[in-house]
């Protein structure tokens, strides 16, 4: 059974890219354009990993993380931060990896493989 990854990014060009890239590597993906959509999808489906953009129109990455924590989900699903703000890379303390934009494609795939086994 393929592993499921939730891609969270408000830029549709970036999210479709990540979705295709991870899909080509054999993962099943879902895309959320903002925090609310992501939370709704997490309610409905089971995910093995999520990639998180730190800037979304409705909530920031840290805020999103806080909501997760409140719902008791924190730690369930590994988070990979993908951001253009490398200065902000440690604002999600429980993230398993951080990637700077533009993304080093090979490194991202290697990391995802390492996490999901």
């Amino acid at each position: 059974m393929p592993k499921r990854i939730l891609v969270i990014d408000d830029d549709e060009h970036v999210s479709s890219y990540l979705s295709d890239l991870l899909g080509d590597a054999g993962y099943e993906t879902d895309v959320a354009a903002n925090g609310q959509q992501a939370l709704a999808l997490l309610e409905k489906k089971r995910f093995d990993l999520m990639t998180l953009d730190l800037e979304m129109p409705d909530m920031t990455g840290p805020k999103f993380n806080k909501v997760l924590k409140r719902q008791g989900r924190s730690g369930d699903i590994p988070i990979v931060v993908i951001t253009g703000h490398m200065g902000l890379k440690y604002v999600i303390p429980n993230a398993v990896a951080e990637f700077d934009k533009p993304i080093d494609r090979e490194a991202l795939l290697a990391k995802v493989k390492e996490i999901l086994g």
Partner: peptide
């Protein structure tokens, strides 16, 4: 830079796709 980075990421994504 972060604006430019976002655009580059998306552009690279477009080329990849």
């Amino acid at each position: 830079s972060h604006g430019v980075k976002g655009m580059l990421t998306a552009l690279e994504g477009g080329v990849y796709r």
